[in-house]
Simulated scan of single mutants.
Amino acid sequence: MSATRKALDNEAEEPTARQEAVLDAVLSLMVEEGDQLTMNAVARRASCSKETLYKWFGDRDGLLTATVRWQAARVRAGRYDGQNLDVAALRDSLKDFAANWLTVISSPTSIALNRLAIGHAASHKSNLGPIVLANGRFAIGERLRPVLEAGREAGLLDFDDPETAFRTFFGLVGRDVQIRLLLGDTLDMSAAEIERDAVRATDQFLALHGRKPSAPKA
């Protein structure tokens, strides 16, 4: 079994506080040095040995996979009670997810990480592109899926395919924000603006997929 495969198989394990510090060091180096990220640089920044990095994460791809997961883990839906879900709780959970995601993708670390991934995917320089896709976009979709399905089971949402519903929500939340940030545009991504965008996207999604109440019988 390869070291990268080992890191992938340990997805359910939460990183320790010391490992989190290492992953934060990786993200900082990506912002500062871009494509020059090396295991030596990470070891120096995190004040640990290369042997420790290889023991914890396997090879460089394993370290990058863990870093992407650590960054993507910041995007979560709000808490909700699936057994007693109502429109207000569903709306709050979707809004929290949207605000969370916008906050993460507009951060300098995510911008740097995604720029690297796009460049590597185009040149086939490394596995960073597929790693970001699998542990970022696809993993986040699976994270919101239970919320969407709980809303459907509660009779609050109406859709046939959860993935299609998620892509609609994803598009309403993200719009052209991420591509503009990746291309260097300066957008107002203050907490207040993110909150407004999250509310607007959530309300638009509920207008599209919210189950309409049945008309009373005559």
Rank of each mutant, 00 (worst) to 15 (best):
P162I: 07
R167T: 08
K125M: 10
A154K: 10
L116Y: 04
A117K: 04
A122N: 08
R145D: 11
A154R: 06
N127S: 12
R145Y: 10
F159M: 04
G136H: 00
L156P: 15
K125E: 15
N135S: 13
R137Q: 06
L116K: 06
V132Q: 11
T164L: 11
G151L: 07
P146M: 13
G155K: 05
L133R: 09
L144K: 00
T164H: 07
S123R: 15
L133Q: 10
G155Y: 06
N135T: 13
G151Y: 10
E142I: 03
A150W: 06
L157A: 01
L116Q: 11
E142M: 03
R145G: 07
L157P: 00
G136R: 00
N135R: 11
G141I: 01
S126Y: 14
V147D: 01
H120K: 05
A154Y: 04
A112K: 02
A165S: 11
E163G: 08
L133C: 07
F138T: 09
S126A: 13
I118T: 13
T164N: 07
T168Q: 03
F159D: 02
L157H: 01
E142C: 02
S126T: 15
S126C: 10
I131N: 02
H124L: 14
G129E: 09
D158I: 04
A165P: 04
N135W: 15
V132Y: 14
I140W: 03
N114R: 08
P130V: 13
E149A: 02
R143K: 05
R145N: 08
K125A: 15
L156M: 10
H124V: 11
F159P: 02
S126N: 14
E149R: 00
E163K: 14
G151V: 13
L133M: 11
L156T: 08
K125I: 07
L133S: 10
G129A: 11
H120R: 03
E142L: 06
S126P: 03
R143Q: 09
P162W: 05
R145A: 10
L113H: 08
F166E: 02
L144N: 01
D158F: 02
